[in-house]
């Protein structure tokens, strides 16, 4: 089934508004929708929303035997799901284009850019390592699912704490969180993804964080993942409207500023949540 394309009046309305420098939801061109992070009762359980786009991410860890070729490293697997519950456009079965993009982007942002220090996940070389599993569920899609998924994934990893373990000789003891404080994962950096949409009418400026209508009518998307230290992790502009090299560099710089703000916001929210979790030890 092909998605129902927006009607012609809707399309004309959007473009007319953009021409006047206005977006339908009242945002500036380079402004994201408000981000909210809701933490669940368990560590590593985050619901992230970007306007009405909502994603749930959850991390758990278990101990496994490492593969013989990498005895010192733990590993991380990512499971993402776009169920028809998020949007009527998604179907079960063959992965859609968007699903492929999202899965690959998560993989690049979290695994290929080495977010998690894998060697720190080793417990006993060749015997026991942590296997992290990141589950991402898309709850509702109202545009720009990609950024929301990446943000949820990173925040979940930052929020997660694994149980403390003690190794004596060959003996491994796991201390439950009630006995010893669980330990946060050691993360190398925190990349955030930003998606910009362009329109076939090149006189229109690019918009950051497109909503559903803008996303349907775009002439090309460019996704940039980078951390607050201005290190790019992924730059992805596959086809669509061609752009001047100068414009691309401008967009990259905008994303660098946004990443800094978002990083500060995420840190403060995590701090707040952690404060609320403290229990008095007698």
């Amino acid at each position: 089934m092909r998605p129902p394309s927006p009607s012609i009046p809707e399309k004309d309305f959007l473009f007319a508004a953009l021409k006047q420098g206005l977006r339908l939801d009242g945002r500036e061109f380079l402004e994201t929708r408000p981000v909210t992070l809701t933490f669940g009762p368990e560590l590593g359980w985050v619901e992230c929303s970007l306007g009405k786009t909502r994603v749930l991410a959850q991390v758990d860890a278990k101990m496994v035997k490492p593969p013989p070729e990498r005895p010192f490293e733990g590993f991380i697997t990512i499971h993402s799901e776009l169920s028809p519950m998020a949007s009527s456009e998604f179907e079960l079965g063959r992965p859609s284009e968007e699903e492929v993009t999202i899965t690959r982007m998560l993989d690049k942002v979290i695994r290929r850019s080495d977010v998690v220090d894998k060697e720190s996940l080793c417990i006993l070389s060749g015997q026991r390592v942590w296997h992290l599993r990141l589950n991402v569920h898309c709850l509702s899609d109202s545009g720009n699912l990609l950024d929301c998924v990446c943000l949820a994934g990173i925040v979940a990893l930052k929020h997660f704490r694994r149980p403390d373990v003690e190794v004596v000789g060959e003996e491994v003891t796991v201390h439950p969180p009630t006995f010893r404080a669980p330990i946060p994962l050691s993360l190398h950096h925190n990349p955030y993804c930003f998606t910009f949409a362009f329109f076939s009418d090149t006189s229109l400026n690019p918009v950051l964080d497109p909503n559903l209508l803008e996303q349907r009518l775009n002439g090309g998307l460019m996704s940039i993942a980078l951390n607050a230290q201005r290190e790019l992790c992924v730059v992805q502009k596959s086809g669509g409207v061609p752009l001047e090299p100068g414009d691309i560099l401008k967009i990259v710089n905008v994303a660098a500023l946004k990443a800094k703000d978002l990083d500060a916001f995420v840190e403060s929210r995590l701090q707040e949540d952690w404060e609320g979790r403290k229990i008095e030890i007698r």
């Binding site: 290929r112 790019l232 992790c233 992924v234 730059v235 502009k237 061609p242 001047e244 660098a256």
Partner: peptide, 27 residues
């Protein structure tokens, strides 16, 4: 690149690189 207009259609990077270095190699 589309050479006639000099515009860029595809940019694809999957590894970590600082913004300033990116600019140089991109040009």
């Amino acid at each position: 690149v589309m050479p006639r207009s000099g515009k860029v259609t595809v940019v694809s990077m999957e590894t970590r690189l600082h913004v300033d270095r990116f600019e140089e190699i991109f040009r």
